[in-house]
């Protein structure tokens, strides 16, 4: 009898180890852990506010934070959501999960990267790029536009991450906005006819291009930079610089409605939006582009005005994404 009781109640000892509220902030981060964790630690050191963080996997490896934020809506656990992409905060705004907060620090950030009502604010950005294998593709042959990829010479040689998820999905929605539905659908169907390989994630695109399984792929700057750092024979192209432009995807941060540590959450948001963080992310391996013009950055990181960014509003992209999801599901064959 005794030992049954002990076994039954043993776990309770662990339950009793409860958290101390007030001096902490809970952040859910879908920015890659290896980049975001040191920044959060720096915040902790600077302010003495304990940061309790949860990180996400790549979109296609687990259902992750987005579902968690939605499921926790009735009793939010997180104070701040640091999103690695610009659409999930916009979606959360639609679903009523976020609260409005206009950070004083964000005044230097261009207004196209901020929500009018203050539900989300962008900083350090990535871009959607074409990555190609230099062993298989010469500089003269390299694709400079997405639309070149429907050419028969790229048949079965292009990889793209499943457009239902993550930044790939954002890219599609942006194309639908810029090109109009008809054009965009035609482009995607042509791409499919040309034997585009749909893989599970941008990391997979990077892996396949790096190993020479395909000649080129559409992926994000951070994945592309990692491949370059790992000394694979790959190079980046910012597509359609003369045309529709390249998709810019800033990090975004938002305050969660009714969360337990609102005040600390605001402090963390102010910190993340500061120029220090932008600078740091520019110098990290992910080589993210600062949204401020005056940040000192390494040579290979382009400044945001050096690229012809697509003219889109992220709230519209989020709505568009919900609209075209059905088409994309059919398109991928899922």
């Amino acid at each position: 009898m005794r030992y049954v009781i002990i076994i039954l109640f043993f776990p309770l000892l662990w339950f009793s180890k409860n958290c101390i509220a007030g001096t902490e902030v809970v952040v859910y981060s879908s920015e890659d852990k290896i980049f975001s964790e040191p920044i959060l630690q720096a915040f902790e050191e600077k302010t003495g506010i304990k940061v309790r963080a949860i990180f996400d996997t790549e979109e296609t490896k687990s259902t992750g934070l987005m579902n968690r934020l939605l499921a926790e809506k009735e009793n939010p656990q997180a104070d701040v959501f640091w999103s690695g992409d610009p659409i999930r905060p916009a979606l959360l705004k639609i679903k009523g999960v976020t609260a409005s907060y206009v950070s004083p620090v964000a005044s230097e950030i261009p207004k196209e990267y901020k929500d009018e009502e203050g539900h989300w604010t962008g900083f350090s950005a990535r871009a959607r790029v074409i990555l190609y294998n230099t062993d298989l593709v010469s500089t003269s042959e390299k694709p400079t536009s997405l639309f070149e990829l429907i050419d028969p010479k790229w048949k079965n040689q292009v990889a793209i991450a499943n457009p239902l998820f993550g930044t790939s999905a954002i890219h599609m929605a942006a194309l639908f906005i810029v090109l109009g539905d008809g054009e965009a659908k035609k482009f995607l169907n042509d791409l499919k006819l040309n034997g585009v390989k749909i893989v599970s994630s941008n990391g997979e695109v990077k892996r396949l291009v790096s190993r020479g399984e395909v000649k080129a792929g559409i992926t994000d700057t951070d994945d592309a930079n990692v491949a370059i750092r790992d000394n694979y024979p790959v190079k980046i192209v910012f597509p359609d610089n003369d045309g529709i432009g390249t998709l810019i995807m800033p990090n975004m941060v938002c305050l969660i409605k009714d969360s337990p540590n609102q005040e600390n959450g605001r402090k963390l948001i102010d910190y993340l939006l500061g120029s220090e963080v932008e600078k740091r992310l520019a110098w990290e391996m992910c080589a993210q582009m600062p949204l401020r013009y005056d940040i000192k950055k390494p040579a290979h990181v382009l400044s945001i005005n050096a690229i012809n960014g697509m003219k889109i509003d992220y709230n519209t992209v989020a709505k568009k994404l919900e609209e075209i999801n059905g088409f994309l599901k059919d398109w991928t064959g899922f």
Partner: peptide, 26 residues
């Protein structure tokens, strides 16, 4: 699959670490 959805901050397990750093780690 289930742990990553429910783990409280600071309670991550090794597979979670593995999968969260898998993106963009060497």
């Amino acid at each position: 699959g289930a742990t990553i959805l429910v783990y409280p901050p600071g309670h991550e397990t090794l597979p979670i670490t593995l999968f969260t750093v898998m993106a963009n780690s060497p």
